[in-house]
Amino acid sequence: MDVRGHLDLLLLAVLADAGPVHGYAVITALRDRSDGAFDVPEGTVYPALHRLERAGLVVSRWEQAAPRRRRVYELTREGREARVAKQSEWRRFVDGVQAVLGPAATQVPA
């Protein structure tokens, strides 16, 4: 499933729930929580995290955890606020789409 345009929200959501966590764990959580639906090239998640950091929504630091050094990411206050705002925006979008499609759209085709 193509998550372009939604990756920022997904990453903010994972970081909000997982707390300070390294990139590999973010990607694993993204894959596990979506039951593998979000099959993005894992390498593209790091530039997205860097972009969120440049926007001030995420901070990161190197952490020397066995067996290797890893960069740990954490939401800032602005990041938490952005997550809430983006989630609300997403909810309105989903509700709007749902309203247009109608009740039949929720039924799983036989």
Binding site: G23, Y24, I27, E42, G43, Y46, H50, R68, R70
Partner: peptide, 17 residues
């Protein structure tokens, strides 16, 4: 610097994977 960081994280990620 962005490239250096990307490379370091790619190495860390791939080793973990």
């Amino acid at each position: 610097p962005a490239g250096r960081r990307m490379l370091a994280e790619a190495e860390s990620h791939l080793l973990a994977a």
